[in-house]
Design a protein around this nucleic acid. Structure first.
Length: 574
DNA sequence: GCCGTTTTCGGCCCGACTGTTTTCAGTCG
């Protein structure tokens, strides 16, 4: 069972207990547990295997009872209370409660009065006008439910960070033009650099808010307005994404930025620390009694609770506060630390640009080196080259390097890992390459153990210095293949192979959690764009974001080192 | 249900907006 599956059970228990009008702190306990499980870098089953119930209870938010439920899930795949609750409220009913605007109270009334217990039935009832008969249901409320159903249809989940990025940039550009606007900060999961973003939160400081709210609602990206008040407005953008804008006073900027950046768990922890110090933290500032004492900057808020500044990407409530308290926050990698890009494709395989064009773009980005890593013969659909064909490309690179000053093109290939774990090129070819990237591009649906063995076998080849997109996932499109990532990390450590953080927005593979795990295991990584065109080199920022979320520092990333040191690292295994 | 440099029992973050409630409940973030 994957951690997300464990978490899903506890999210559902929380929702079901809400329906039963259970103690809200109990509900929160389940939510907290679910959230903590989701952000755990180690698989729960592995934790349990290591030290049983006691080890599970070490995880924040997990006590005796939830630990026992986890044990039950590991042993039987099911959990009794969860099953019992599902009998009372089937999944269709929970689904209905997830329609925006429908909470537990409304859902229960709908079922009691009209026997509506699925989202589909709700839609039919709305269409037939049955809701009018209910107490407290007038035109507006029914209209909202109608819109909620339509929205749910259209918005299936979250959006790629890169897609959110486009909208954020557009919205910020327009906000900048309003004369009332002072500071602008896109906050929320976007600012934390999460791989997917549920909605966009933009914080603005201004003395007067109405003109901003009015203008915002009329931006061309806005499809419709959900709500509009003096401090907060919510809209749905044309791509179905929700965007919230919050306007605060300049002196509230720091506390508001902190609050709107989240995540929720992190905020709760900070507020609890404040309470213990006799303070109150809200989006409007840090207060002693009713007296405002701080909040102009985020650093002030952290300082008030006795902490140093914590970068947004770490604010997930997964140990960053503890680390901050001990002065052990990582010195996170930044985009400017990147000195080169070790995976990209040229016209020799399926790339859109020549090597010269890629070099030009890389120089524009201030890099000192790149590796050209075209596909090999097995990946025919992507123009994979044979052993003979790549010789020409390598000669081309040699000639080019002869002309370049202070810049180096490394000779590489993205070599297929065949189903039996052998590589697409013989060692006699691999050994003339500087960068040998191994990757799985076929036979994704292997059993877990076989896939794990396949990949580890490739890592054992002394010429393979980098494993590309280690889990093969495409966010929102394709699940990772079945592979024991823990074993792969271990094998990377033992063989001296580096793991890749593929910065391609749809991949971000390794994920943030796996990065953190790999670092803990002492494995170095590289951040590469896997660009198929010169412009694709700009995606590096998403890979860096992921690395930051994985607590990585420049020293953990091989392409932050100068060329000479990088070459040493690349040849260390031979 | 979790948790403990105020607690092993008694707490548990804080606020905005909507709609219809004449003082607030429900929902959301």
């Amino acid at each position: 069972m994957e951690n997300t599956e464990f978490a899903k059970v506890f999210w559902e228990i929380a929702e079901l207990l809400e329906l039963k009008n259970e103690n809200r702190f109990k509900i929160r306990a389940y939510q907290k547990a679910a959230q903590n499980i989701e952000s755990l870098s180690e698989n729960l089953s592995a934790v349990y295997k290591k030290g049983g119930i006691k080890e599970l209870e070490e995880i924040p938010g997990i006590g005796e009872h939830i630990a026992l439920k986890i044990e039950e899930l590991i042993k039987t795949g099911k959990q009794k209370n969860h099953q019992q609750l599902l009998k009372e409220f089937p999944r269709g009913f929970i689904e209905m409660m997830r329609v925006p605007g429908i909470g537990p109270k409304t859902a229960l009334m709908l079922r009691k009065k009209l026997k509506i217990d699925t989202a589909d039935k709700l839609q039919t009832a709305v269409a037939k006008g049955l809701l009018k008969e209910l107490p407290g249901f007038k035109e507006k409320k029914i209209e909202n439910i109608k819109k909620g159903i339509a929205l749910k249809e259209r918005v299936k989940g979250r959006f790629l960070l890169s897609e959110a990025d486009q909208y954020v940039t557009a919205l910020v550009d327009q906000l900048k033009k309003l004369k009332e606007v002072e500071e602008i900060l896109p906050a929320g999961s976007y600012r934390r650099g999460k791989e997917t973003v549920g909605d966009i939160d933009i914080l603005v400081t201004a003395k007067k808010s109405e003109p901003i709210m009015k203008a915002f609602a009329l931006f061309p990206q806005v499809d419709r307005v959900l709500s509009q008040g003096p401090t907060r407005s919510s809209v749905i953008l044309r791509n179905g994404m929700q965007a919230d804008i919050r306007v605060v006073q300049p002196k509230e900027f720091g506390s508001a930025a902190h609050y709107f950046t989240g995540n929720k768990q992190h905020n709760i922890l900070i507020r609890e620390m404040a309470v213990k110090k006799g303070l109150k933290v809200s989006e409007y500032g840090v207060f002693k009694g009713t007296k405002w004492t701080a909040g102009k900057t985020e650093a002030e808020v952290f300082k008030a609770v006795g902490l140093p500044y914590i970068p947004p990407e770490l604010r997930e409530g997964t140990g960053e506060i503890e680390a901050a308290r001990k002065g052990k926050l990582p010195d996170l990698i930044e985009l400017a630390d990147i000195r080169g890009d070790l995976q990209m494709h040229s016209k020799y395989s399926d790339g859109g640009n020549t090597i010269e064009e890629l070099v030009e773009k890389a120089q524009e980005l201030g890099y000192g080196y790149i590796a050209i890593t075209d596909h090999t013969k097995s990946t025919r659909v992507a123009g994979g080259q044979t052993e003979k064909e790549i010789i020409k490309e390598l000669a081309h690179i040699d000639r080019l390097n002869g002309k370049l000053n202070g810049f180096r093109v490394l000779k590489g290939a993205e070599v297929d890992i065949l189903p039996d774990g052998t590589l697409d090129f013989p060692d006699s070819v691999l050994k003339v390459l500087d960068v040998v990237i191994a990757a799985v591009h076929s036979n994704f649906k292997m059993p877990r153990e076989k896939m794990t063995r396949r990949i580890i076998k490739a890592l054992e080849n002394k010429y393979v210095n980098l494993l590309s997109h280690p889990t093969g996932r495409l966010i929102g499109k394709r699940d990772p293949y079945e592979v024991d990532i823990e074993d792969v990390i271990k094998a990377a450590k033992e063989t001296g192979t580096y793991l890749e953080i593929n910065a391609y927005p749809e991949r971000l593979d390794l994920s943030d959690l796996h990065c953190r795990r790999a670092k803990e295991a002492g494995v170095m990584m590289s951040i590469d764009t896997d660009a198929h065109a010169a412009a694709g080199l700009e995606a590096m920022k998403y890979g860096v974001m992921t690395a930051r979320r994985g607590w990585l520092e420049p020293k953990d990333i091989i392409n932050t080192y100068p060329l000479a040191k990088l070459i040493k690292l690349l040849y260390a295994k031979r």
